[in-house]
Nucleic acid binder design. Structure first.
Length: 979
RNA sequence: GGGCGUGUAGCUCAGUUGGUUAGAGCACACGCUUGAUAAGCGUGUGGUCGACAGUUCGAGUCUGUCCACGCCCA
């Protein structure tokens, strides 16, 4: 480089800015966040829109356990993007985050910290680890005897609050703004009280009832167990084949049109079971409607008479071999569906039972005819509901048969296996007994095998007052994004059974019901429940466990049945889904800042069955409308290979880990770049891939900021800056108007995409705008004007005005997504215009100026861009031959005869060198064929014969003509003379 | 096994009511530039549109079957 060129460089207006190329997000983000916190940005935003239309996104509460990971981060950031966008659009959009605090996982962690190791690798010590006095308090509790419910609940609350703190910090570090210092917690007294209020409403409207339902039961611990509390282990037990005789063969022969000989031969359904002790509760046998069932005739070894066994055809050979019967005959066979409703006699209890159909019948084991005892199994129970079968469960809490089991009264169920087998053998019903080892559930605490036992549970009747139909109607009024959410939730609603809301646990909201000590009648009374509601509002649900029963109800409460005045309180608590399903009341209605129904619920697709459905039902039942206007769902994160994320394999990225590696804005950009309605592949690599688009966007801003270092955008007039550099739109060059046309198209599209929650389209549009339209074309062309023109020349100010408009609009467009970076950019823009709002998040979303959108202009420039790329292609050919370097060295001849094309090229002939960054353009009329590109023309490139201007680098005729400035072109001489 | 989805270049996405050689950006390769410089620009390579049938003059686009994956159930 010669000294002379260095001098000329000083006469240029090269970009200047403190906005660094390197993002350093990991370091900068915490500083920006601190500033937001200090200035209470969230409440400033809220205050700004105080009287505007409300937009309520109601946060679904995450569980207060474990660290925030990529899945939870995805959800919260999506919410944050929506809320920030709405706030910038001028809506009053408060965001009240919530936490689900009750429930089994926390209770488990507290009760048995050793077993339930946190898979998230949590930094929080478990309770036993935290016990500092040397006494391992928790392990003592593990026995379940020493701790009172209140003590356990206290520990649970501590645990939940600890994780709420952790998650709060992690969400905040992702840039999510909200009511972080006043979130809603399902353990807040006000929340607990609202849950009771919903229950009270349901009771008053008659939705609540009580009935038997089988649950896992440990007869050693005398307690109910949840699925998560079971440990499966191999267990040796009986495997028995029993015949259930058909008494009235007349009915059968008529119905099935079997030969009349059947009337004389005893027929039996042939069942198999591994739990003979449940046979006293047998009320049906299930067959598969589509399977073939065989009528197998053989000779009874004892009676020496023919008998017929009915069971699945596919198992005949296998089973007869097991029985050791070689001489048998399949009389005929028919579909299981035909057997429906046939009756048989219980083998040892006086009871007539029936055949039912069930899809779960399989041919893997047994006979294809399934012993059904609705009191002792979930599938049996569900079938029982369909056929209206009685739920028999003649077993007490210690596992002893009750009087209902007749001769077996007082026998323990495990002992009953043998006794029942013996009895069946004696009566000739038992054809085979073997022992087999199979996987069987055991109590996680005492390790003893558990049973299914039916107990009284509380239910919400889904069909009362046609609630199911109403809910289905409401579903149609809701906007589901994506649309298939509607069919998904509808089919679930159509099929779902009544909702069992009682749980035999401790960490939750108690069900406010009392039992008369005299007649044991449950007291389900709206007034009494409302008393509890008020009590909870003041003192929380803990009071249920600390106060005597008499203080939990209005004085002088009497039993409705017997008039007794003494009661015991319910021990069960609510299903946690009932709690979170009550959030529409506890949060959206209770909080005056919010508004029912909420505008948006936004959760993963699993919540169609969960929170959405279980919020919809209580809301429809108590308020006759859906709690949400729009429901948006996202898919689940999965591995790059498309498989389910496995915590144990370490696939699950933690929020802290991501934030400290790539920064929150990269995570946010990644989230904005994907179609989240589908499954979402994720890995650290996939995240890191977003660093590049980020840099591109960042550099686009850097270019604009750099070229506005000497620009004042503070508007003039009315006390504004008189020295403003802003120029009127009418003075803009056509290319500037083209750029603004593109900008306003972008604003228009992006606004629509944000409104439709299509953030990946927002991202795409922004990105292509930055890379293709601005960086590759407009900014490139602009360099000459910005760098080489006189500093305050009108033409340069015109370009800067356009840049300023683009900059200030674009930064607001990205703000909901790149919240930190946008804020950083904003602080630099405030140097150009100090009148701007202190934070980008306090500014308004840019509005489309339709007067700046010009279809004709756009089409003309589309052609110019085509010419540009065809010329570039030709230049590239010469470059490959080493004949030319930079395009600015090229002299270009455009040949055309095309109708309109020639004319078009001539119109822009003067501007084309600048637009194509070449030395010169000559448009020449000439017949061209064949045409290679999209334009009816051909291109010829030669290297310019002119000299290069040392200042502006253009090759023009005038260079060297002026003896006092031999290295400059005439334009540059005129400019430098001013200095 | 059932319900609801998804499957277009290595990645993220476009592909209108079925119609000419399936597009874009990134990545990659090769260059240019060195006045956005740990930046910027250009050109190029790359796809049997999950598979197989079918409807049609013609299918990524419609129909069916299958495969893979996810969510929720069983």
């Amino acid at each position: 480089m010669t000294e002379q060129t260095v001098d000329y460089q000083k006469t240029l207006n090269l970009p200047k800015t403190d906005f660094s190329m390197k993002a350093d997000l990991v370091k900068k983000e915490p500083l920006i966040r601190q500033k937001w916190e200090k200035e209470d940005l969230y409440h400033q935003i809220i205050k700004k829109n105080k009287d505007k239309t409300k937009y309520i996104l109601h946060d679904g509460p995450p569980y207060a356990n474990g660290d925030v990971h990529v899945g939870t981060a995805l959800n919260k950031i999506l919410k944050d993007i929506v809320v920030k966008f709405k706030a910038m659009q001028g809506y009053y959009a408060p965001f009240v985050p919530g936490w689900d605090c009750h429930g089994l996982p926390i209770e488990h962690r507290v009760m048995n910290p050793v077993r339930s190791k946190s898979p998230e690798g949590t930094a929080v010590p478990t309770l036993s680890e935290r016990t500092s006095n040397g006494v391992n308090q928790m392990s003592r509790w593990t026995s379940g005897k020493d701790a009172t419910t209140s003590q356990i609940r206290e520990e649970c609350e501590k645990y939940a609050r600890r994780y709420i703190e952790i998650q709060r910090r992690q969400f905040q570090s992702l840039g999510v703004l909200g009511e972080w210092h006043n979130p809603y917690l399902t353990l807040d007294p006000s929340y607990e009280s609202a849950v009771i209020e919903v229950f009270s409403d349901l009771v008053k409207k008659g939705f609540i009832y009580r009935k038997l339902k089988p649950i896992h039961w440990c007869m050693h611990c005398e307690t109910a167990l949840a699925e998560a509390e079971l440990e499966y282990a191999d267990e040796k037990g009986p495997s028995v084949y029993v015949k259930f005789p058909i008494v009235d063969t007349t009915e059968m022969t008529q119905k099935l049109k079997t030969p009349n000989s059947a009337l004389r031969t005893p027929h039996s359904f042939f069942i198999w079971t591994t739990t003979p002790w449940t046979l006293p509760a047998n009320v049906a046998v299930a067959v598969h409607p589509d399977l073939e069932y065989a009528f197998v005739e053989y000779t009874n070894a004892d009676t020496k008479r023919p008998e017929v066994l009915i069971f699945a055809e596919g198992l005949v050979e296998k089973v007869m071999k097991l029985l050791g019967i070689n001489d048998y005959k399949v009389l005929f066979k028919l579909k299981g569906a035909k057997l429906e409703n046939l009756q048989y006699e219980h083998p040892f209890i006086k009871r007539t039972c029936q055949v039912i159909l069930a899809d779960y019948v399989r041919l893997e084991d047994g006979t294809g005819v399934v012993h059904t005892a609705p009191g002792h199994g979930i599938e049996d129970y569900e079938s029982g509901l369909k056929y209206n079968l009685p739920v028999l469960s003649p077993v007490d809490s210690k596992g002893r048969f009750t009087t209902e089991a007749q001769v077996f009264e007082g026998v323990r169920v495990w002992d009953a296996d043998d006794k029942i087998c013996q009895m069946l053998k004696d009566s000739g019903h038992l054809l085979l007994r073997q022992d087999m080892v199979h996987s069987y559930p055991h109590c996680w605490r005492c390790k003893k095998p558990v049973i299914f036992r039916s107990t009284e549970q509380w239910f919400i009747s889904v069909d009362n007052h046609s609630a199911r139909l109403k809910a289905l109607e409401e579903v149609k009024k809701v906007r589901w994004v994506p649309e298939w959410g509607q069919s998904r939730i509808s089919s679930m609603l159509e099929q779902r059974p009544d909702w069992c809301i009682s749980r035999q646990r401790q960490w939750g909201v108690p069900i406010p019901v009392f039992y008369c000590t005299r007649c044991h009648e449950p007291l389900l009374d709206g007034k009494v429940i409302d008393f509890v509601k008020e009590l909870f509002r003041k003192q929380g649900a803990n009071s249920w466990f600390t106060k005597p029963t008499s203080e939990l109800m209005p004085p002088d409460t009497k039993c409705n049945k017997c008039g007794g005045g003494e009661f015991t309180k319910e021990k069960d608590i609510f299903d946690v889904w009932f709690e979170s399903g009550s959030s529409f009341r506890a949060v959206v209605i209770e909080n005056n800042d919010l508004q029912f129904p909420a505008d948006l619920y936004l959760e993963g697709t699993d919540q169609h069955r969960g929170w959405f459905q279980l919020s919809l039902l209580p809301s429809v039942m108590t308020r006759s409308e859906a709690p949400f206007k729009t429901v948006l769902t996202h898919g689940f994160v999965k591995t790059p290979e498309g498989d389910k994320i496995s915590k144990s394999k370490g696939d699950l990225l933690l929020s802290d880990e991501m934030v400290s590696k790539v920064g929150a804005d990269i995570i946010r950009l990644w989230i904005a770049s994907i179609d989240f309605t589908d499954d979402i592949p994720v890995s650290m690599e996939i995240l890191e891939e977003k660093a590049d688009p980020y840099r591109k966007i960042r550099n686009t801003f850097r270019y604009m900021l750099g070229n506005l270092y000497d620009f004042s955008a503070e508007p003039s007039g009315s006390g504004g800056n008189p020295k403003t550099d802003l120029v009127k739109y009418s003075q803009l060059w056509e290319i500037d108007r083209w750029a603004l046309n593109k900008l306003h198209r972008l604003i228009k599209d992006v606004t629509l995409y944000y409104d439709n929650f299509e953030f990946y389209r927002v991202f795409r549009e922004i990105y292509e705008f930055c890379v293709v339209e601005m960086s590759a074309f407009y900014f490139d062309v602009l360099k000459d004007r910005l760098y080489t023109f006189a500093k305050d020349s009108p033409d340069r100010r015109v370009a800067q005005t356009a840049l300023y408009e683009i900059l200030t609009a674009l930064v607001r467009i990205i703000a909901p997504i790149l919240s930190f970076t946008a804020e950083e950019i904003w602080s630099h823009i405030r140097g150009i215009n100090p009148k701007l709002e202190p934070s980008v998040h306090l500014s308004d979303f840019p509005e489309v100026d339709n007067s700046k959108i010009d279809q004709g202009l756009e089409e003309r420039w589309q052609k110019i861009l085509q010419v540009r790329s065809e010329v570039a292609r030709e230049i590239e050919k010469l470059r490959k031959e080493d004949k030319i370097g930079s395009s600015i060295e090229a002299d270009v001849k455009l040949y055309s005869d095309g109708a309109g094309v020639l004319e078009f090229l001539r119109t822009y002939e003067k501007d084309l060198p600048m637009l194509l960054k070449v030395s010169s353009i000559k448009v020449i009329e000439k017949k061209v064929s064949p045409v290679t590109g999209a334009i009816q023309m051909s291109v010829e490139i030669t290297k310019s014969g002119h000299q290069k201007c040392q200042r502006c680098w253009n090759y023009t005729e005038s260079v060297g003509k002026n003896p006092s400035h031999p290295a400059l072109c005439s334009r540059c001489i005129a400019i430098t003379d001013k200095y």
